[in-house]
Design a protein around this nucleic acid. Sequence first.
DNA 1: TCACGGCGATTACAGATGTAAACCTTGCGC
DNA 2: GCGCAAGGTTTACATCTGTAATCGCCGTGA
Lengths: 133, 133
Amino acid sequence: MTTSEDSNEARTGERITDAEHAVMEVLWDRPRQTAAEVCEDVCAARGWSLATVKTLLSRLVQKGAVAAEPDGRRFLYSPLIAREDYVGGESRRLVDRLFGGSAASLVAHLAESEALTANDLDEIEALLKELRA
Amino acid sequence: MTTSEDSNEARTGERITDAEHAVMEVLWDRPRQTAAEVCEDVCAARGWSLATVKTLLSRLVQKGAVAAEPDGRRFLYSPLIAREDYVGGESRRLVDRLFGGSAASLVAHLAESEALTANDLDEIEALLKELRA
DNA sequence: TCACGGCGATTACAGATGTAAACCTTGCGC
DNA sequence: GCGCAAGGTTTACATCTGTAATCGCCGTGA
């Protein structure tokens, strides 16, 4: 395959689903949380029950995306894959699927569809300068 | 909500899946094709059978994403949603989900992760200039 | 006219996903 | 010592997705 990456989910093979991703975000925000703690962060927002969070955490552990560190009789969960990597993978997927692999095309599209505010443009421009430096 | 769009799948409500998307691409490339014609374009590439294409076309029609114009005893299928809109919707979803809605963040990420080649940077810069003009 | 081939519609079916209840084990408080 | 609460594990189950096979209709060529 074209993606020579070996740092993200490509390694686990298993993809992280939408629901699972919500859990990952919580763990990325703060690692080493219990299922209950994670629930506190997402259950309300997504209308989930603690049971759902437990299931998702299990699946993530199975997928090798999350580590379960024993802490007494329970576990402290932490992400095993970096957010950077996940985000990178997802971004690349989108670019590959919809823009023929050209990231520039994506940016072009965002710009043309006015998804970019003047502010965004400024930021990007600044970024470019930085990258060029 | 932030998405004021009313032109794409938001209207249909139903999301277009990956497999369906492959079919859409063919139709965007050339509208008014029969199932068999579509198959010619994708079956080989995806290892599908004609039956699969038929199913996907049906689902797309149900979802209101594709129009089936009667032509004798068969149908000529055409996209009902513009590629622009689909691409825009998907892009926005990604940006919302992974970059807190900031397209600039996405660009920043692409840049930092070296997903952008020097060439890309040039293109983007040119684009910016144009947009500013 | 009659079987056959082309085509949409119906049905199938396994695996992934979202969402959760039920169950089981074990330390803790009474 | 014992039942309860907390936490993980197992089971459940409806949908959605991917991928087809099968059914039924009908126009066409023999």
